[in-house]
Design a protein around this nucleic acid. Structure first.
Lengths: 198, 198
DNA sequence: GCTCTTCTCTACCATTTGGTAGAGAACGGT
DNA sequence: ACCGTTCTCTACCAAATGGTAGAGAAGAGC
């Protein structure tokens, strides 16, 4: 019988949503199995352990994010501010389509250092590239001078902050739905443009 | 014998840090008790249940945060951009000194709606005040026009993002030491000023 | 000293957790 | 028809979870 990887994918996808919504610790294998419609032991057949499942969910998420960023960079316009806007929007897009992904990001700091580093290592090449690019544009006078690392750190902190505090942000009448994420994304774009214009 | 509330406070404080670091679900009563140095049942003597403890931890955190914001508003200078800078710095400081407090906030979305609303209700008056103030300054042409709610949401998300993800920010070569925090805070202030100048 | 309240403990419990053992069903290849 | 691999199941298990029962220590007030 051919390997029916459909079950495996289904488990990973459902687990991604559950982990994002409730957190790794709060979701049991029984819950995941019930959600998929199989027995718990089927989950443990496809994934060696819960930790293994967590790791694979994160790896897939990081890989997907890397693909999105890569595509955005490749097709982005040349003007620095337009380019920044395109990348910011690209990073937001998967989150807008599937808010549970934002919940996953918030879980990363709760993992053993080794596991969280595996996630950030996936992003490091992009960060390094972005820093070099910004330094170049700043030297050319096409972006306001500043420390590229700090600018990127701020942007990253902002995105993860949004991911981390959807309920708290509700206090300002903001909703973590599609429209709300879109509005916040546009405001962030406006901020970045105003702050980095030369 | 007088009520020895010291134990109660100690349990609440230690639980605050543990919940903030690992999440409500991930921390057991045994862990909390071990951290405090008492038996698990002592925790259950002071707090009716784990849910009760969670609720009290959140209530105290919301109250403390309200005090900080109140003080910052009262002593801030009058010029809009200076005022924003002062408040951002004031909120930034305790948030960074005790990240667990903000880790707590990230747990709110995982609580029953009733419990999370009790938290945000504490902050709502301040947010409403800030929104009205920004609208006034925008009308007076002393701040760039925009949606005050979104600006506040963005700033709040950024500050909490910094406090909750210091390890992840290392991906851009940033360090969570005093100097690093100061640099990031100053970059944030620069951002806010540039983005909101009329 | 006695007693009441306040406080912390040991002992225990039902449930749930992640995980194992191994039987048996469902196909493809021959 | 048969076999071997792939896949999912029932039946368990040890450990940890939140929580209960109730004994006993330790002041405060008399």
């Amino acid at each position: 019988m051919a390997r029916r990887t459909g079950t495996r994918d289904l488990i990973r996808e459902r687990a991604t949503d559950l982990f994002g919504r409730w957190g790794f610790e709060a979701v049991s294998l029984d819950q995941i199995a019930a959600e998929v419609g199989v027995a718990k032991q089927t989950v443990l057949y496809w994934f060696a352990s819960k930790d293994d499942l967590v790791q694979q969910v994160l790896a897939r998420t990081a890989a997907d994010l890397a693909v999105v960023v890569e595509a955005a960079i490749r097709t982005a316009p040349d003007d620095p501010l337009d380019r920044l806007e395109a990348v910011v929007k690209a990073v937001f897009r998967p989150a807008v389509r599937r808010p549970a992904l934002l919940g996953l990001v918030r879980e990363i700091s709760r993992l053993p250092a080794e596991a969280s580093e595996r996630f950030t290592d996936t992003l490091r090449p992009f960060v390094d590239r972005a820093v070099r690019w910004m330094e170049m544009e700043m030297s050319a006078g096409r972006l306001r001078r500043g420390d590229p690392s700090l600018v990127i750190a701020l942007a990253y902190a902002t995105v993860t902050g949004i991911a981390t505090e959807p309920e708290a942000l509700r206090v300002v009448g903001w909703n973590a739905d599609i429209a709300g994420l879109r509005r916040l994304r546009d405001e962030l774009v406006t901020f970045v443009r105003a702050a980095l214009a030369p």
